[in-house]
């Protein structure tokens, strides 16, 4: 990915923007002519068009979050006359987005940690140790990649409800529990995490681990002090992948977090959108949308190379 940006400006025309014309027909390079230039122009037009198609709806949503409800209805295309910060206040407290935001952070801090820890543990063992049943466990994980989540929804609801009846740990689990939702995220992230990290652990050199074992290092220490740090690049890109996946998850919390106060952000926003039709507080909805969008935008701008590589690389491996 690092080479992508450097190649673009090498042969741009000089300052006045006019490409130098070929001196004589004999020195003319193939493919450069008025027709070519027209195609180039057209290409630029298409690219710009799609950039606008991508950004304008989002820009419009952001502008709408600063309007009054009256402006939103009567002048949807105009700029807001002032900055209605009150929209954000209403979204944050009255529409409960603040609570949802907190819920999302609680759930994700648990689910992301556990996914990466358990995922790398499982993947490491499957990648580096030969034992009976290794392939079987691996394929059971990978099979999860093609199972449609919707088939599991109904029984998963009951499994989660039943875990609430367990002695001792029951009160922490069950429906409307942060831990339950986090564990469900972990389970549904396992197939891809194990699949991806197994491939990654296989690429690490085996001489290191052999040497460490020779020196009397235990398997546990080998993993936590040597192999895990070595796998950092793979773990980081997969953690970004899982962060976005968990942050944006919609259908799983819809089933498990049915209590209004326990909703996570994407789910809460969806419910808010469904109810906005009656209350007609559109701008608070858009303010909530911007609040939900900002963390993702920040993560994306800071790590856009890694995010792109993580999301697309996952498909290819």
């Amino acid at each position: 990915m690092s080479t992508t940006t450097t190649m673009t400006h090498d042969h741009e025309p000089d300052g006045n923007g006019q490409p130098p014309r070929p001196v004589s027909p004999r020195r003319r390079t193939p493919g450069v002519g008025p027709g070519e230039r027209a195609i180039s122009f057209l290409n630029g037009g298409f690219l710009l068009f799609w950039a606008l198609v991508t950004t304008l709806p989002l820009l419009w949503a952001m502008l709408s979050s600063f309007k009054t409800n009256g402006e939103f209805r009567t002048d949807p295309m105009g700029l807001p006359s002032g900055l209605e910060w009150d929209n954000f206040a209403r979204a944050w407290s009255a529409a409960n987005i603040g609570q949802y935001f907190l819920n999302s952070i609680i759930v994700i801090s648990m689910s992301l940690t556990l996914t990466m820890l358990f995922g790398s543990m499982g993947a490491y063992v499957l990648a580096r140790y030969d034992f009976p049943g290794n392939r079987l466990v691996y394929y059971v994980f990978v099979a999860g990649l093609v199972l449609p989540v919707f088939l599991a929804l109904v029984p998963m609801f009951f499994v989660v409800r039943e875990t609430g009846e367990l002695p001792l740990i029951g009160p922490m689990l069950g429906l409307n529990s942060y831990l339950s939702l986090a564990l469900v995220y972990v389970a549904f992230s396992m197939p891809f995490t194990v699949f991806f990290l197994t491939a990654f652990f296989r690429t690490l050199p085996s001489s290191v681990s052999e040497a460490a074992i020779m020196d009397g290092c235990s398997h546990f220490r080998l993993f936590f002090t040597i192999m895990l740090p070595m796998a950092k690049p793979g773990i980081v890109s997969l953690a970004l992948f899982n962060f976005l996946g968990h942050w944006n998850q919609y259908v799983l919390p819809l089933v498990i977090m049915q209590d209004g106060d326990k909703r996570v952000l994407a789910q809460g926003l969806g419910t808010l959108a469904a109810n906005t039709g009656f209350r007609a507080d559109w701008t608070a909805l858009f303010a909530g949308l911007v609040i939900a969008l900002l963390p993702v935008l920040i993560v994306y701008i800071l790590f856009q190379k890694q995010v792109q590589a993580g999301l697309t690389g996952g498909v290819l491996k």
């Binding site: 992508t4 673009t8 042969h11 630029g44 950039a51 949308l289």
Partner: peptide, 30 residues
């Protein structure tokens, strides 16, 4: 532009890539 023998991307292609990809990181809900 195909000038000389170099084949190249258009100007600002890295910015286009950043913009185009953004919807993918957004929640489907949004």
């Amino acid at each position: 532009k195909r000038r000389g023998v170099a084949v190249q991307g258009v100007r600002g292609s890295s910015i286009y890539r950043i913009v185009y990809f953004f919807p993918q990181v957004l929640s489907v809900v949004i």
